[in-house]
């Protein structure tokens, strides 16, 4: 019993609760820092807790992020979908989960991702990029303009 209590305490320390904000769970561990950068979490002053290389049956190693006082818009959630397609968002109000959101990969991605092709017109003129999602996992995007395919490891955000 004592051992169990201790491990529960440790577990609590690992993933401490937040009062208001968003919990993003089931991020593939290897993409944690990409998610942080895409959501601009490295540029804000809110309290952020994250854990990585946590056990997850589904993903192998998962990561979790808890951000205080931040509530994401759908457009931003779309951005995560590209590299964390199974991510789940919990919206926290007064320590309670008030809403759960599942990240879903859209059919079309407009204005979020850069085309990886240096000879694509979108990298030379001010054009909003547009991709068709041709494969969801791992993600593959076909540029509407140059028709080249941008893969997961080539994805850079606008």
């Amino acid at each position: 019993m004592e051992a169990n209590d201790n491990s529960k305490k440790k577990l609590k320390l690992k993933v401490s609760a937040i009062k208001e904000g968003t919990v993003i769970d089931h991020i593939p561990a290897k993409n944690l820092f990409k998610v942080i950068s895409i959501l601009g979490l490295d540029k804000i002053e809110n309290q952020i807790t994250f854990g990585t290389n946590l056990d997850s049956g589904k993903l192998g190693a998962k990561a979790i992020i808890k951000v205080s006082d931040v509530f994401f818009e759908d457009r931003e959630i779309n951005k995560i979908a590209l590299i964390a397609p199974h991510a789940k968002l919990n919206i926290i109000r007064d320590y309670e989960v008030v809403e759960k959101k599942i990240v879903e990969t859209p059919e079309k991605i407009t204005g979020i991702v850069k085309c990886f092709n240096p000879k694509c017109i979108t990298n030379h003129e001010k054009i909003t990029t547009c991709f068709t999602v041709i494969k969801k996992s791992p993600i593959a995007l076909k540029c509407k303009y140059c028709e080249k395919i941008t893969n997961l490891d080539q994805i850079k955000m606008v």
Partner: peptide, 10 residues
Amino acid sequence: RHPLEGASRY
């Protein structure tokens, strides 16, 4: 005719 890919679509 244009040297950049996607120029015609644009």
